[in-house]
Design a protein around this nucleic acid. Structure first.
Lengths: 190, 190
DNA sequence: CCGAACACGTGAAAC
DNA sequence: TGTTTCACGTGTTCG
């Protein structure tokens, strides 16, 4: 331990604390023998850096309740938490899509269907009537929280869904236009 | 005030707060006469609060390069930027998929909807996602007295319809099994 | 020994 | 008025 600064304590702290050694002295040469600390400039620089960082952080956060130092950090904390939550929600939504698509790859065994659909597996009946006419019957249960959205407004319905087809369906992978045509054929008779 | 202290602040000052001003006092035997500022305790409390906030922020940020005050804020800044970027990317991905759902949610004007859907023919959008995955959007209006019957009971839906396909759909007329498979693929994601 | 980082007490200014 | 927030200069510790 160095004892060199003991006398600094005596003369600087005691009388310095009540005397004028404040910021007026910033960098102007005061006539009095102000023993400026060696780390004075360093400390000033450090403070400035810290202040700048805080300001930058403040500019980054959207909702700032108060410009004070503590509240800036608090707002930053809540902002980060909010962002984290948002990211989680979005990844959840994407995960739902992925799992929905992935599930379609699996060949549906009955137990999986039961597990997925509860007591009611989806049922589809397609009966050939005559020529190219087909009779279609669909029974399904809407899953809770599924990505598919079916909304109805005064008789109009909007259905959005993602589907993955078997590789060799029906004879080759239908392109968008073919699927579009096919679904239009069904809807036209709704 | 409780003196629960984080190890950040090494303030060993307890309830003393009278004249035992830590290190100054033990080497500098001034017999008291330290004019304690009125806001001394307040300032201590403020510092502690600020320190706690910084610590909390530090605990929230994942990658901390250094435990120093400035770097904590810097890391928080980069972390926020990263989170923002992630959110943007995820929303972009989702927007690509469910852009149809988004605009549907936004338009709440029912008159516009009914006017638009009432005059518009049924609309089908099929967008290729990846591989064999397809994103399907259907907008249609149920015709009055049409043959198709859609009943809903406790979340279960029964749809019956007859459809006739174009002669050359997609490459040849799909048989009942193929149609059944295809519709199951869609319904499973409902 | 030097530089970086920090807590501290204090005066002043802001609310 | 008083309470709160801030910047400042300082001593001290650590690498």
């Amino acid at each position: 331990m160095d004892r060199v600064k003991t006398e600094f304590n005596d003369l600087c702290i005691t009388e310095g604390s009540k005397m004028d050694k404040r910021k007026n002295v910033d960098q102007n040469e005061d006539e009095g023998r102000k023993f400026i600390s060696k780390n004075l400039e360093a400390e000033r620089k450090r403070r400035k850096k810290l202040s700048d960082r805080q300001l930058e952080l403040c500019s980054l956060v959207l909702i700032i309740t108060n410009m004070t130092k503590a509240t800036i950090i608090t707002d930053a904390i809540t902002y980060i938490e909010e962002l984290k939550k948002t990211v989680e929600e979005l990844t959840d939504q994407l995960r739902q899509i992925k799992t929905t698509c992935a599930d379609e790859e699996k060949t549906n065994s009955e137990e999986e269907d039961i597990k997925k659909w509860g007591t009611m597996p989806p049922e589809v009946q397609v009966n050939h009537i005559t020529g190219t006419k087909q009779w279609i019957k669909i029974v399904f249960q809407k899953k809770r929280g599924s990505l598919t959205n079916v909304t109805t407004s005064r008789g109009a319905s909007l259905v959005t869904s993602s589907a993955e087809f078997a590789e060799n369906f029906p004879c080759e992978l239908p392109d968008a236009d073919q699927i579009k045509k096919f679904l239009l054929e069904i809807i036209k008779s709704f």
